[in-house]
């Protein structure tokens, strides 16, 4: 019996004449196009993840004066300041880490190592996102605690007339509830969007990586 694979090999090599052919100009035009590679997307997403929390400052109620004075009135502004300093230190660390990982990725590596490195980069980004999400939760938590210990809530939150009329105890629990729920909803939403996007993007890479690992056992 003739080896079918030899037949296939022969056929495969003869097929060359039937392949499409691009001209010099076609190829020349291509080299300046934007890559749509996975790594580039991981890079874009991390930039977005980095920017989104900062975009919140564009929302009026989060803007410095207001948010800061609320924090001050609640007596948590020192804590908030410390938290912000820590946050920026960690963010800086992540930016450096991420840049190093990104640099490590080379299309000239063997497939196994290349995938390993992409997955490592992905993991760094994932840790960063988990950090951001926990920061959001901690900040909301801080406000909840601040509200709990606040003596004059209606004034601190600048609720005006309507707030002053409310029963202080009731108002306190109401605001704590709102803050708590808001914190959880916000964190879940951000996390959900992120992990969905990322999962979809790197699913195929993971499948291939696992396949190669299995092969090399």
């Amino acid at each position: 019996m003739m080896d079918e694979l030899e037949l296939l090999k022969k056929d495969w090599q003869q097929r060359e004449q039937e392949l499409p052919r691009l001209s010099y100009d076609d190829i020349h035009r291509m080299i300046w196009k934007k890559s749509s590679s996975l790594v580039r997307w991981i890079f874009y997403i991390s930039i977005i993840e980095f920017l989104v929390p900062h975009l919140l400052y564009l929302v009026p109620s989060f803007r410095e004066g207001n948010g800061y004075s609320v924090a001050k009135d609640l007596g948590i502004h020192t804590e908030l300041l410390v938290l912000t300093v820590i946050q920026y230190a960690v963010v800086l660390y992540f930016i450096i880490q991420f840049y190093r990982r990104y640099k490590e990725i080379s299309v000239l590596d063997d497939a196994n190592r290349l995938m390993k490195r992409i997955i490592r980069t992905r993991r760094t980004v994932k840790h960063y996102v988990i950090f951001c999400l926990s920061m959001i939760l901690v900040i909301f938590g801080l406000f909840v605690v601040g509200i709990y210990f606040s003596d004059n809530l209606a004034e601190a939150l600048q609720l005006g007339e309507a707030g002053a009329k409310q029963d202080p105890v009731e108002l306190k629990w109401l605001m704590m509830g709102i803050m708590g729920v808001l914190g959880v909803v916000f964190t879940t939403l951000m996390g959900g969007i992120y992990f969905l996007l990322y999962g979809l993007l790197t699913r195929r890479l993971y499948t291939n990586y696992k396949e190669l690992r299995r092969m090399d056992r």
């Binding site: 590596d109 063997d110 497939a111 196994n112 499948t207 396949e211 190669l212 090399d216």
Partner: peptide, 25 residues
Amino acid sequence: DIDKALVFLYLEDKNYSEIADTLGI
């Protein structure tokens, strides 16, 4: 995808050391 790569290199008449080297196994 990985199996395809293996078959592709095989059809291109690459030897196993080259195949292993390209895939990193």
